[in-house]
Design a binder for these strands. Sequence first.
DNA 1: TACATTTGATATGTAGAACATATATATTTA
DNA 2: TAAATATATATGTTCTACATATCAAATGTA
Lengths: 230, 230
Amino acid sequence: MAVDDLTKDLAPITSNTMADIVEVRLREYLKRKSFLPGDALPKEMELAEALGVSRNVLREALSRLRMLGMIETKKKRGMVLARPDILGTFERVLDPLIIDKETLQDIFELRLVLEMGLADLIYIRKTDKDIIELENIAKKEVNHDNSFRIKNEIAFHGKLYEMSGNDTLKRFQIMLLPIFDYVITVEKTPTIGKVNHMDLVQILKTGTMEEFKSGMQAHLQPHLDRLKKI
Amino acid sequence: MAVDDLTKDLAPITSNTMADIVEVRLREYLKRKSFLPGDALPKEMELAEALGVSRNVLREALSRLRMLGMIETKKKRGMVLARPDILGTFERVLDPLIIDKETLQDIFELRLVLEMGLADLIYIRKTDKDIIELENIAKKEVNHDNSFRIKNEIAFHGKLYEMSGNDTLKRFQIMLLPIFDYVITVEKTPTIGKVNHMDLVQILKTGTMEEFKSGMQAHLQPHLDRLKKI
DNA sequence: TACATTTGATATGTAGAACATATATATTTA
DNA sequence: TAAATATATATGTTCTACATATCAAATGTA
């Protein structure tokens, strides 16, 4: 354990390559000059000369920014600053097979936190149409095999995120799905709370937000019970 | 609006460069071969030849994976698969000046959702020491200028995240701070709820989780009131 | 034999030149 | 004037060469 802590606390000494340095310098440059999306950037050769590196190294750094969507390039027009898709970059590294166990657990908890906190947004923005759709999803649950049950579970909770009216949140949830898939697969027994999906729909129809919050908590309780104290 | 929807629905036709393709191919390769952190990868020339591209193009793709922390390289040892820091990659593109207004709003709401949903974790894991520290932060609030008030506000809510015992969540919050800083700066009048920090501390000391949830909601109510219905 | 030193081989890091390709702009042609 | 063509230019790609760090083997020394 002590070793693990050391490696976390002590600087990684990431023997910075030129590309690493140039990447940082470019970031600083873009920020300092307060470039805005659409603004044109100097051409590669000018940047390379200014930085005192080969075009090759510069292009490695630019390649990174391009991947993140921070810049876009066209053959003759040159480069322009762009709006990165903040979630798109996230998605690239979200592989449950690579993420360590602790982080996996953290993310699982993050999902619980999100769903517990979603009630306010849902109650501000829910529509009758939403509730009907949600009910239709809940109705399909009876008498199906396990793989269908999981799909339906995802559809139901996905719809809840959708009802929050927050696209970023919704995309975030979709992105985290593979991780829960993984965690759920690891779980031995399926977790079923005292409040099921149909109950939640009923609360949404006629109940108060407080009732919905309690209902959601009861629904997720088996997961919450599993969380360790420290 | 119709145009915006089109650009979202229709494929972006991102005239893929070789580096883009190689990046994807490498990802697939790593996944298919189910490499694990620490495993050695083939050397650059072998990969380049197998892919039928120049070493240069390959290096642009590798440079991206290296930035994300997916691979690490050493002079003679070659490359090994590594564990990417999932939040580190996120941080790179989180600049309030570049993010568009809608996403900024989405993220602001995300923060509210997180804090509303944090109660369960906090009640599972809070310690007396935590509460004393939180109280000390709350005590310092009186009679200070605005810049101190904001710092203290951040410290208080930051401590709440810390009490969740979830490192990923805590880091996530720190990462989102610049964005709230930006949103708060835009706000004309400071928003003060009916329940203040000291009240929340008192609830944590002797109250139930339900009371804490209600208290948190009252505390954040001014922000929630501001949210648009759609 | 055991250990320290030197040497060489090797994989990544960096540089530079050359050519390919697409495209905005200028020029020519109908 | 408008369409077709040519040219200049910035990015995309390849190739070669060399620098640098480091592992491993060979050599030297006690």
